[in-house]
Simulated scan of single mutants.
Amino acid sequence: MSSLSDHRALVLLSGGQDSTTCLAWALARFSEVETVGFDYGQRHKIELACREVVRQALAQPTPKLPGRLGADHLIALDALGALSDTAMTRDVAIAMDDNGLPNTFVPGRNLAFMVFAGALAYRRGCKHIVLGVCETDYSGYPDCRDDTVKAMQIALNLGMEARFVLHTPLMWRDKAATFALAEALGGAALLDLVVAETHTCYLGDRSQRHAWGYGCGHCPACQLRADGWSRFRAEPPRG
């Protein structure tokens, strides 16, 4: 069995709102945190550049986020993009497919992410794997569901003879609650970082700045984020 440290965590960091909030969550709980990203030919590849900005901003420990940010890993999954005929990997209009799922769904994407993250965590001695998936405010992707993650945890532990723990801090939080969590974790500075520097827009548009961040303002990802920001700002003051 691999020697996994209970103090070490690996965060799947895409450069988006959810994974950035999860990185802060991990830094608040684990003393050593590493990150991993995936290049699968995504249409919104700009998110990979956002990862670096986020990491630089969170590189120095703070009283609220005392964990040390360690190595970053970027894994190329070109085969996944080549296999996929979706609006996330092709220049096609975003729409609903006949199976009831949006055509932004990349079959097997999050499953592959978890497998590769598990292999990396095994090598790096990270017991904890943190993902920003959610089935509260989401696009209907079946690989974001709680049951999927629990099943993958069992499969990884059986297949690698390990005792990984997969954490999904946002699983039961909507986007408004995710903004609130960022503020609770890192105050105004982290909230500003999430708004200004993370990327969500499926079209990769960073030419238009809105109150909730950059994006086209029309794709499903932008609409979810905009609605969440509006509800977050409408809530009574916290604290």
Rank of each mutant, 00 (worst) to 15 (best):
Q42M: 02
K45A: 14
I46P: 03
I46A: 11
I46E: 12
A49C: 13
C50A: 15
C50T: 13
R51L: 06
E52M: 13
V53E: 15
V53M: 09
V54I: 15
V54T: 14
R55L: 14
R55C: 12
A57I: 02
P61Y: 05
P63N: 01
R68S: 04
R68P: 05
R68I: 04
H73F: 12
L74A: 06
I75T: 05
A76M: 08
L77G: 00
L77N: 05
L80R: 06
L80C: 07
G81C: 01
G81H: 01
G81V: 03
A82L: 14
L83E: 13
L83K: 15
T86E: 01
A87S: 00
M88P: 07
M88S: 11
R90S: 00
R90F: 00
D91L: 06
A93F: 11
A95T: 15
M96F: 14
M96N: 14
D97P: 10
N99C: 04
G100K: 09
G100Y: 06
T104L: 04
T104G: 01
F105E: 08
F105C: 06
V106W: 06
G108Y: 13
G108M: 12
R109N: 05
A112I: 10
A112D: 04
V115M: 09
V115D: 07
V115L: 13
V115Y: 07
F116H: 09
F116N: 10
A121H: 02
Y122I: 10
R123T: 05
R123M: 06
R124V: 14
R124I: 05
G125A: 08
K127Q: 15
K127C: 04
K127W: 07
H128P: 08
H128A: 13
H128K: 13
